[in-house]
Computed example of a mutant assay.
Amino acid sequence: MSETENNKSSKKLPNAFLDAHHHFVDTTIYGDSFQAFLAHLIPDFQYLPSDYKRDVIDPIQKAGVAFHGSVHVECIPDDGIAEAQWITSFTKGNSAPYVKAIVASCNLAQDSDKVEEELSKISTQLPHVKGIRWILDCVGKFNGNDATHIATKRHDGIDYLRGSEGGYEGHVVSAFETGFGLLDKYNMTFDLQCAPVQLQEASKLCRRHPNVKVVIDHLGKPRTLFGANNDKNNSNASMNQGELAVWREGMKSMAQNSNVYVKISMLGYAIPGWISSQEYLNSMKQLVWETVTLFGPKRCMVATNFWKDAATSDADGMSDVGPDPVQFLELVYGFLKDDVSDEDLECIFSKTAASFYGVSI
């Protein structure tokens, strides 16, 4: 082994990191305005720039990793523009100069004139906003178990990617596709958060709109591959091959579109408690490696999804354990470092996100 190879194998963390996905929350002041929906779920809760700096930036920098900034992603606000204005106020002062880009909320399925009005206002008044997210998870009417994200309660039973209520065997809802197409006009990206069963139709949508850059949130959200688990000592080691197959075919289809990227984030949603056993770690390494192999390093980006604590950020309530930001970077870096070049590792941990969202580092 050469000295260069030996140095690489002994490294535990990337040289630099741009966090491609995190959230700020304040339901104490803003609960009656743009975070009213969220306030019903987590009343009197704050997660502000100083908290993120304490939990994410400071430990990462102390570990010797250069922090290149972050991307703030919408947190199911009632008013996407108001939330984006709130985040922008932090970027203009000393609270969060590290936020390099904002992904705002906009209901792309509403009347097209309304969509255009909102996108026009965002593009002219909020230069930090680089993209839009409208959470699309739908595997059935929301009941707390079937749907994969609380935000879909806003459009309960409607699958914008596979049609309305029923068998979900249709096509993209036309109103949503019209709004999605407007992102090209305003040079905005789209953060795609959906369930694995929706990826095939999402792929067709992306193929019809090749100029809209799309990033799949949270590894495509394969769900509880070893079963629902809030017990870090769960010894169930039998992976759900059916769920895995649906995710794999959907991700293969998405990867065929050169305008589609993916975030390596919220890994505990796929395998709750993944840091608690070697079996889970090995399975997670395979999921991450398979994703990077499908999309290539220049279309993969790493993100903490941090907003409350390590377990919530990692598993969205599916587990009571999760890696802290430094441990998360160390684990993902360890999954990849022996088989990925230094140049490609830089892409995965910082340069891909910077290029996708159009920010300098």
Rank of each mutant, 00 (worst) to 15 (best):
F45C: 07
H128Y: 12
K121Q: 07
G268N: 10
V215A: 06
K232N: 08
D156K: 05
V71Q: 06
K204Y: 14
V246A: 05
W274N: 05
L183V: 01
L345S: 01
N107V: 07
P323K: 12
D324P: 01
G317L: 02
V302K: 11
M301E: 04
H72C: 11
D51C: 14
Y30H: 15
S164R: 13
R299L: 06
E116W: 05
Q61C: 14
K12N: 12
L331H: 11
K252T: 15
K285C: 04
I29F: 00
V332P: 00
N259D: 07
D344H: 04
I102A: 10
K153I: 09
F176D: 08
D217M: 10
D339L: 02
N211T: 11
S112K: 13
H22C: 05
L345C: 04
F349P: 01
Y186W: 13
E243S: 13
M251S: 15
I42E: 10
N305R: 11
R133F: 03
E5K: 14
G317W: 05
E5Y: 03
G69P: 02
A109D: 05
N211C: 01
T27Y: 03
I264N: 06
W307C: 13
Q278Y: 07
E177Y: 12
L287M: 05
G144V: 01
A270P: 01
D78V: 01
S105G: 09
